[in-house]
Amino acid sequence: MSRDLELEKQIDAYVKGKLSDEEAQKLWEKLLQRPDYIDLLKTELGVKSILEKRSSEGYSNSAHENKNIIYSIKDSWKWIAAAAAVILLVVSLNIFHLDTTTSLQSEVPAQFSLADNLSSAEVFRNQKGETTPSDSLLNNGFQAALSGNISKAIDTYDEIIDKYEDKPAATKAYLNKGIIQYNSGNFGTSIRSFKAVIDRKTNRKTLEEKAYWYMGNAYVNLEQLEKAREAIHTVYSMDGIYRKPSFRLLRKLDYKLGNVDYDNFEEQMKEGQ
């Protein structure tokens, strides 16, 4: 990887205490993109610390002695481990300063796009070539919701659940109903609908993943953060379509709950990018 002379100048200025808080924060953002330069910063901070200590104790170092100090620092795994912990702590505080300037609730959608999130019927046909009744109703509910007739959509989904409880369409009806309830601000009610999807133990893992994702967001809105974290962690573990957004939300929840793992923070941040 090529050298970044401007970044090296900023590191030098940071070590010498010449950067403002805003400039220092921007430096850390750049360092996350160039982790190779974190080693340089650790070394320079260590050199500065040792030289200042020796100076305060009345030592006068020659250039040769200073060079030996640098090599000693680079070869000391104990120092590197200690410095790494400090560096990662500073990085985490700077990053989370950006993430926590607003409430956690502002990090989750106030509403989900119905067109993008509601489930419609797949092309399942019986031997006569006709759409099954349950799937036909599911499509009717989808069309009603998109046209703004929310009450009709809910009634249609309830009809599916009542008449076709054992059909795949009922699972989607629960999911769609939960999304509409979420969008209406009825987060507690939406959670019950999402749990119904999960309890059905569908073979369609995407539907289950969606249910956990929406449910986790609903718990955030209710400020039930432990339950939110449990749901979002499940989403992340499923390694599906919501893996990246679930990672970001999971880290923010961990911060709010005091669960941040500083030792693995840098690796976690890279993985979530």
Results as ranks from 00 to 15, higher is better:
Ile73Ser: 00
Leu51Glu: 12
Trp79Ala: 06
Asn66Ala: 10
Ala63Phe: 15
Ser92Trp: 03
Ser76Ala: 04
Leu89Thr: 15
Leu40Thr: 01
Ala81Asn: 08
Tyr59Pro: 06
Arg54Ser: 04
Ala83Trp: 02
Leu88Met: 13
Leu51Trp: 02
Glu44Met: 06
Ala84Asp: 11
Ser72Ile: 08
Ile73Lys: 00
Ile70Phe: 02
Glu65Ala: 05
Lys74Cys: 00
His64Met: 13
Val91Glu: 04
Trp79Gln: 11
Asp39Val: 13
Thr43Gly: 14
Ile87Gln: 01
Ala81Arg: 13
Lys42Arg: 12
Ile69Gln: 01
Gln33Lys: 11
Asn94Tyr: 06
Ala84Phe: 08
Gln33Asp: 06
Asp75Trp: 10
Ile70Ser: 05
Asn68Arg: 14
Leu45Asn: 03
Ala63Asp: 13
Ala83Gln: 08
Ala63Thr: 10
Ala85Phe: 09
Ile95Asp: 04
Asn94Arg: 14
Asn61Ile: 07
Lys74Glu: 10
Asn68Met: 15
Arg54Gln: 13
Leu89Phe: 06
Ser92Glu: 08
Ile50Thr: 04
Tyr71Ser: 08
Ala84Val: 11
Leu45Ser: 08
Leu41Lys: 00
Asn61Gly: 06
Ser72Gln: 11
Lys78Thr: 12
Asp36Tyr: 01
Pro35Thr: 01
Ile38Gly: 04
Val47Lys: 02
Ser76His: 01
Ile95Ser: 05
Leu93Met: 15
Val86Ile: 08
Leu45Cys: 09
Ile95Leu: 11
Ala81Cys: 10
Ile73Cys: 00
Trp79His: 09
Ala81Ile: 08
Asn61Thr: 07
Ser55Gln: 13
Glu65Gln: 11
His64Lys: 15
Asn68Gln: 12
Val47Asp: 05
Leu45Tyr: 04
Ser49Trp: 15
Asp36Asn: 01
His97Val: 07
Glu57Gln: 15
Trp79Leu: 08
Leu45Trp: 06
Asp75Arg: 05
Leu88Asn: 12
Gln33Trp: 09
Thr43Lys: 09
Ile69Ser: 04
Gly58Glu: 01
Asn68Pro: 15
Ser76Phe: 02
Val86Ser: 07
Lys67Val: 14
Lys78Ser: 13
Arg34Gln: 04
Ile80Gly: 05
His64Ser: 12
Leu88Thr: 15
Ala83Ile: 02
His97Leu: 08
Leu88Ala: 11
Val91Phe: 00
Asn68Ala: 12
Arg34Pro: 03
Ile87Phe: 01
Ser55Cys: 06
Asn66Pro: 06
Ser56Phe: 04
Pro35Gly: 01
Leu40Gln: 04
Asn94Ser: 13
His64Leu: 15
Asp39Ile: 15
Lys53Gln: 06
Thr43Cys: 14
Ile73Arg: 00
Ala83Phe: 05
Lys42Ile: 05
Ala82Leu: 07
Ala84Ser: 12
Ser49Pro: 09
Ala83His: 03
Gly46Val: 01
Ile50Pro: 03
Leu88Asp: 06
Glu57Phe: 05
Leu41Phe: 01
Tyr37Glu: 03
Arg34Asp: 00
Val91Met: 03
Val86Tyr: 04
Asp75Ser: 10
Ala84Trp: 14
Ala85Cys: 05
Ile70Leu: 05
Leu88His: 11
Val47Cys: 05
Lys48Arg: 12
Ile70Gly: 03
Ser92Gln: 08
Tyr71His: 10
Asn66Cys: 10
Pro35Ile: 00
Ser60Glu: 11
Ile95Glu: 09
Ile73Glu: 00
Asn68His: 07
Trp79Cys: 13
Gly58Arg: 06
Ser92Tyr: 06
Ile73Asp: 00
Leu89Val: 08
Tyr59Thr: 09
Ala63Val: 13
Val47Pro: 04
